[in-house]
Design a protein around this nucleic acid. Structure first.
Lengths: 153, 153
DNA sequence: CAAAATTATATCGTGCACGATGCAAATATA
DNA sequence: TATATTTGCATCGTGCACGATATAATTTTG
């Protein structure tokens, strides 16, 4: 593959990754809308369901997000009564995030989501082929990388 | 895998996809900053380099983006003199997007990017393991899907 | 112990994404 | 041909992402 080809859209790992990521997020949307939440909010809930109360920072570590994204996000979630924010007493810098009953209850609704998503994708040919395309690009890309790193060592 | 496990972060295809996509975009950043562009702007340029002048709509088809995203994006690119926007004379609704000399010249700089990115990722253990994690999740996920669709038919 | 460095969170500005809506040009239809 | 529909683009509002910066609390260091 020459430099010209490498500049083509499908040959750069980033584009399939970027578009499939958006596609899958969109596939989640109808289910999340029923729960009244967005996709990043769903991620925060999943972390809290799994690990219990955490600080803003700890949530960020799990999701690879900084506070400049998380702070407003968590505040919006507090506004719709999914969680409470309280300053820690031992460390006044730290904000403890705690699920409300409403936040905890959503887990029941959410537990159906992964299955429903799979079923939905099975009936949507387009999305599935895009996912397969990503898989192929990713595989090729990883083969490339491994090959290169072997040469280096 | 029961419903409880399915709700865990790493078992939902969306999260690795979402975080690796952001990770890779971030890896592109230093290279794109030298060119004075963002990642979505880089995508638009790649499309135009490959296909020549296109309408806003045609660009959207390649990138899977609607005009509510593309219109402002392309206007920003026009502002920094990467391209020109002209209403088509045959069809007054259509806007033709045409690279400026500056936009065309950027291709030379860009042609180095894919190689440099690979090298960068080879030296960044963290990002690489995340990519591998995505690959594994994706593989497992696709196996699941194929299995399910076989049962259905 | 006081000054410096670190840490946890928050705010600001910019640029996406995207659903909803609007509008004018082009096309289809009665 | 008048009307309805479709098409191409744009705008608006909301919610992320994220670099840069700020601030207060805590910890480290001289």
């Amino acid at each position: 593959m020459d430099k010209e080809d490498q500049l083509k859209l499908d040959n750069q790992i980033c584009f399939p990754l970027y578009s499939v990521s958006r596609l899958i997020t969109k596939a989640y949307k109808p289910f999340l809308e029923k729960m009244g939440i967005t996709y990043p909010q769903y991620l925060v809930l999943m972390v809290l369901w799994e690990h219990g109360n955490l600080s803003v920072n700890q949530i960020g570590e799990k999701l690879l997000l900084n506070t400049n994204t998380l702070s407003p996000l968590i505040k919006r979630m507090a506004k719709i009564d999914l969680l409470n924010r309280t300053r820690s007493t031992e460390d006044e810098r730290s904000v403890r995030v705690e699920l409300t009953e409403k936040g905890k209850d959503l887990k029941n609704l959410a537990s159906e989501v992964p299955q429903k998503l799979l079923n939905r994708l099975l009936s949507e040919e387009v999305e599935l082929t895009d996912v397969m395309l990503l898989k192929n690009t990713l595989d090729k890309w990883i083969t490339d990388l491994t090959h290169k790193s072997e040469i280096k060592t």
